[in-house]
Nucleic acid binder design. Structure first.
Lengths: 207, 207
DNA sequence: GCCGAACAAGCAAGTGCTTGGTAGAGTCAA
DNA sequence: TTGACTCTACCAAGCACTTGCTTGTTCGGC
């Protein structure tokens, strides 16, 4: 009866390979069907075990998304910090942030989709308070870089930076919904195309 | 027993004011909580009736979204056709399409969110086959306008039009998730800011 | 007296999660 | 070397609850 509460920390908190597998399976399902529409039986079926067995590895369905999101957000935060720290100037900071964001499509496709689709619902619960916090952090990072660019005269003065950030963020993150790893464009190619449009526009130079 | 099957066409198919009210209530809930996460009891509660009573007006929960989406998509399709027909040149076709798309934020905020969030899940069912079809139609409209602009030399030749369309579409539609009718920007103001960035980029002209 | 709109009650299916148990691999003192 | 032990990963069964939807009935207004 108490035995389930004394499972070694290694199994319940991290470490185990099987755990990681199960998390990846869950992430895939949460991303494609949605968190609410995915049942613990769906996850167990995909893993080839029974639903009850999942509770050997995880406290709850919620704690699975929790872990998936935290891992992704931590990685993304570290990446952002590094990019801003190493950037030579505001313009290359922005372009590199865009490249890194599109690059994340390869590393965390499922987590990005979940973050995008489920943040609103999940943020209702205390345990997911960090979601809006991290979102604000990301916004601050981008807006600071944009602002620095304006001060330096590289970016137009008539830009509303909050709006500009939202335009960029929506374009970049929403790409998970149509990006196809087997498709003809690499994330890098997509990033370069977007950087061109964002920096110089779609209108011909000679116009 | 058979009585529920002989309700007048007026009530079951359209017309009734109460029906329209109920649809609006359902749309709001579907948009904010998601289709699956919204229960028929939620809708009934919000309308001040019992869940069973909803089935006097509608066949099923599915037929409610169906109707909500069809209405929005028909309106949007008509608007797109008119814009393209009346546009003087490719550039004003694109800018006007953008203005109209942002304008839809006021008329159909709930339907846009539902279309965006639930299309993927709903398209699994035969009755929603029209969703990908209409999406393709919209894509064709935009890509034709972009292509015409390229031919006319107004738009850059190095644009991948499919990518360009996706960038625009994602930015415009995703705005429902943060647009606030009480906020400081009107849809028009947001549209103009985006048109500026899209056409000329964020980099200062003198650079 | 009919008809639109609603209620009251409930069903079958499915939900997340709990429980008590076990097979098998590893650990280690006697 | 053996036997008692622990640990991991899982199963089988089921509980309390929620889901979309159905049924039979009521009631006020034209």
């Amino acid at each position: 009866m108490v035995s389930s509460k004394r499972l070694s920390a290694r199994t319940r908190e991290s470490g185990s390979e099987r755990r990681a597998e199960l998390l990846a399976i869950a992430a895939e399902l949460f991303a494609t069907r949605g968190f609410l529409a995915t049942t613990v039986r769906d996850i167990a079926d995909a893993a080839g075990i029974l639903s009850g067995s999942l509770y050997h590895h995880f406290d709850s369905k919620e704690s699975m998304v929790d872990e998936i999101l935290r891992e992704f957000l931590d990685d993304q935060r570290r990446t952002n910090e590094r990019v801003v720290r190493e950037a030579a100037d505001p313009r290359s900071a922005i372009t590199e942030l865009i490249r890194q964001a599109f690059g994340a499509l390869l590393r965390h496709p499922a987590a990005i989709a979940i973050f995008q689709n489920e943040s609103k619902h999940l943020a209702q619960f205390d345990r997911f308070d960090y979601l809006p916090t991290v979102a604000d952090e990301f916004e601050d990072t981008w807006i600071e870089a944009l602002h620095a660019g304006q001060q330096a005269g590289v970016f137009r003065e008539d830009l509303d930076l909050k709006l500009t950030y939202r335009f960029i963020r929506d374009t970049v993150w929403t790409a998970v919904h149509w990006y196809d790893p087997q498709g003809k464009h690499s994330p890098q190619a997509i990033a370069e195309q977007y950087i061109t449009i964002l920096c110089n526009g779609i209108v011909s130079p000679e116009e």
